[in-house]
Design a protein around this nucleic acid. Structure first.
Lengths: 187, 187, 187, 187
DNA sequence: TATGAATGAGTTTTCATTCAT
DNA sequence: CATGAATGAAAACTCATTCAT
């Protein structure tokens, strides 16, 4: 008996997000995914019950990823300023280094049938724990996690999304954004 | 004759965004649009060369809309605080009152084949002209339009998108966000 | 070892007819049979060369069954009347007690690719031997086995098939049928 | 605008039953039907919502047919004997002349998902009205329509189904059957 | 023997688009 | 202009069967 191949499932998932980056969620068919992954279309149904199920599972998994990445960008001993910069730059780097995952998650979040499956808030907690600490110590302005996500991450998402239009000025805008956010959150 | 035609085209566009809100961009076919609009599929091709062209034209048109709406929310005589509140609340209101357009634009922005067609920045200028004025007069922190969009609009977009998860606390979060943005941008 | 295997083959055959009762011959796939039998699809090919071969073998075997059952319903010392009643009631009981086999055989008999494999006449002889005896003795009307099958068994098959539509009146119709057949065949 | 083509739908239905006669209900796919009918597979979905719906509609329609045919075989002025012979011979002729419809209806009646859609009894009334008349006048044995169907039609169905095995003796068996049924029903 | 993975060829069905009126 | 019919191409998915263990 052939054993279920973890690598193969991984190949399928990677093909999926690569394609969705290139062709969008509505331009991505099961056969294209199969071709991209180098397997038969039927094989995909060994690993997933349906295209919808595959998207949901991948979405659930990948929605987490930027937060895991971000956790590696921040250190407990960072100053409040550094912490904010690390989060902003980290998230922006992620959007570049993992453009495919980033675009995949962005598209899925907007898709009515998928959006329900994952709630962004759930993932963010650990990333903000450093900020919570400073907030408790009165070194940072207190606010809810919703608001933290909204003001720290959404603007970066916006910049990442419009990266191509910003061309060379990207770094400048990022720096400006970081300054403004630092002033906003620090006492 | 002229009026009737434009009404029909309007019906088609409205059917399009209604469907995309309900079923997502990848669940929306020409026949479904036709059925929803009460016309024949062939009729759609009287007004548009292709599905892609229809999406692009609708996207181009509707991407503008929130900015037109916002312009009606702000008055030249508003104080800086009021201005920020008006923009934030106005954009949020728009996302509720025109949920379909909002979702349509969000989805199109993330779709690789459509995103290129419209650049968000182009639209934003007039909305920010009040802010520009205050910035020139030194009453508001200076920053680029990119950054203004990023910090003023993206967070609202985030809240709008997660509206259902926030339930009753929506208004609280909105108020917190407004306060934080006012502090951030006002001297 | 030998026993275990036969049990497994038996489980497969039972799964086959159970499924065909529920889903019809065209809704029954090898994988479904395997799932229902609790074995792997590949295992089925240990016992049968192909799906077609499996159906044929099962058909051949199960087509016999009602006749074996009927033989247990009749006794050599039965009166002509009792004999007819026993055959009719026995066949009807069989269609209820072994609904799955009954439906399976009915479906296979109508399926062009399978019908050729089994000829109903071959099976019937022993059931009718009691009748033959009475015919020889001049107590029953003489006629061919074809005709016996046609008039004694087909009507029961019809009633069995429409059992659900007859609801409570089933027993009445059966009794009427028995009376009519007795009058018809007895001198 | 092209008009819906009655002939085309007819061609599809005829292709359907021709194929089901040749290949059985489980060997008949939409693409095969389309090829046989000389249309595109997609065209079939202009006329029917699904394969299942097509089968149901065809079944509903064709289940009637033998009864319409039979009505043309019987005349009000027939003697009781002639009436029975006409029904038996008529039904048998139908099974030969319209082998495809006959086989189609037989297969559908046994298919669990289709059998529910049509109840055989509903169709039979007019065919038996001549018999009812003789029954009322005391010239024929009284019995329910269920029983009439069971004893008059089922045996013929059995003979028709086994026609190939009976070879040359078909006519003999038929004649024997008719005699026996006449004796059974006539006083 | 027994198996779950794997698949080419098929399934049913939908698609965006064009045709004929 | 407007349309329902028509369709080639492709969608999602299933099939009977074989492979590798």
């Amino acid at each position: 008996m052939r054993l279920k191949d973890e690598q193969k499932q991984q190949r399928i998932k990677e093909a999926l997000i690569r394609l969705i980056l290139r062709e969008g969620i509505d331009g991505t068919s099961v056969s294209k995914i199969a071709r991209e992954a180098g397997v038969s279309p039927a094989t995909i149904y060994v690993y997933y019950d349906s295209k919808e199920a595959m998207l949901q599972e991948a979405f659930r998994e990948y929605a987490h990823q930027p937060y895991l990445y971000l956790e590696n960008c921040i250190r407990p001993d960072m100053s409040p300023e550094a912490l904010i910069e690390a989060i902003v730059r980290g998230y922006y780097s992620y959007s570049i280094e993992h453009e495919d995952i980033f675009s995949f998650v962005e598209q899925c979040s907007r898709c009515p049938s998928l959006a329900a499956a994952v709630c962004e808030k759930d993932c963010s907690c650990d990333v903000f724990s450093g900020i919570h600490e400073y907030q408790r110590r009165g070194k940072m302005r207190g606010c809810s996690d919703w608001t933290l996500s909204a003001v720290l991450l959404s603007p970066v998402r916006f910049m990442a999304m419009n990266r191509s239009s910003m061309a060379e000025e990207g770094e400048l805008h990022l720096r400006e954004l970081i300054r403004i956010l630092q002033d906003m959150l620090l006492y």
